[in-house]
């Protein structure tokens, strides 16, 4: 297991007296696509945000290639540069064009030169089908387009693992497809992904590991076939039944 990209051990997070996550553990190996499912408020997003330190875990360990991320004095910015994140609300930089959004991290954080950064940005924008829009500003794009740019921005950093925090939840149904297509394609290319999602079909088809969180606890985890085909826990069955009934 020493070759895992990311290992989370007994992660807990409290906001005040409210316990959001309790003893959550997870191992992510290279090329894994892990989906985290569960109802709203179950702690899925908080878990993901703890992983790249947007939230500080209350206790537990996060280990990235053997380095303890949660250790005091850890260099969070250079760690985050290797762990991409795609947000529910896109969070594209509103003061920059599409192209600049994909360049700024490369030039300022990775200190790459303009030419290389531009080639990299164009490659990924091409891949998500947003290359024609390099001169547009985020406010001029649709939600699905914004999210595809956000994915290209994350990819341009060449992260070792990509976190998705409900990437399609803010999109209308027509646009969900275009973003899921991109994610499908990425998963197929061997990208290591950790996806918090309400898209059960996507989780079932794409992930090789599924974690069902309930009230801040890992209620059940296993392969996609196990969780969706033959869930063991009553709570998991209830949750999935409600989704399938939709």
């Amino acid at each position: 297991m020493s070759h895992s990209v990311l290992e989370v051990k007994n992660l807990s997070k409290t906001f005040g007296t409210h316990l959001v996550l309790q003893d959550v553990s997870l191992t992510v190996n290279p090329g894994d696509v892990t989906s985290i499912i569960g109802s709203s408020g179950s702690g899925k997003s908080t878990f993901l945000r703890c992983i790249n330190l947007l939230e500080t875990p209350t206790s537990g360990q996060i280990i990235f290639h053997g380095d303890e991320v949660t250790a005091p004095g850890f260099d969070a910015p250079s760690y985050r540069a290797k762990v991409g994140m795609v947000f529910q609300s896109f969070n594209l930089f509103n003061n920059m064009t599409v192209l600049d959004n994909c360049l700024v991290g490369q030039t300022k954080v990775l200190k790459k030169d303009k030419k290389d950064a531009q080639d990299m940005a164009m490659m990924y924008l091409e891949r998500v089908g947003m290359a024609p829009y390099i001169n547009a500003r985020p406010s001029q794009l649709s939600g699905g387009q914004k999210q595809r740019v956000a994915i290209a921005r994350a990819l341009a950093m060449e992260p070792e693992i990509l976190l998705f925090d409900e990437p399609t939840s803010a999109l209308d149904p027509e646009m969900v497809g275009e973003v899921l297509d991109v994610m499908h394609d990425l998963a197929g290319s061997g990208m290591t992904m950790l996806v918090v999602t309400h898209e059960m079909a996507f989780a079932r088809d794409v992930s090789n590991h599924v974690v069902f969180l309930s009230d801040g606890l890992v209620c059940e985890e296993g392969s996609a076939e196990e969780i969706f085909g033959n869930p063991q826990q009553e709570r998991t069955r209830e949750f999935l039944a409600r989704y399938m009934a939709r």
Binding site: R80, N91, N95
Partner: peptide, 23 residues
């Protein structure tokens, strides 16, 4: 979200301010 987007690609606080927030 603008702060978080910048943090998530590895920007330090100062880089975030100069490139994203202050403009």
């Amino acid at each position: 979200g603008q702060f978080e987007g910048a943090k998530a690609i590895g920007m330090t606080h100062n880089q975030t301010m100069i490139n994203v927030i202050l403009p």
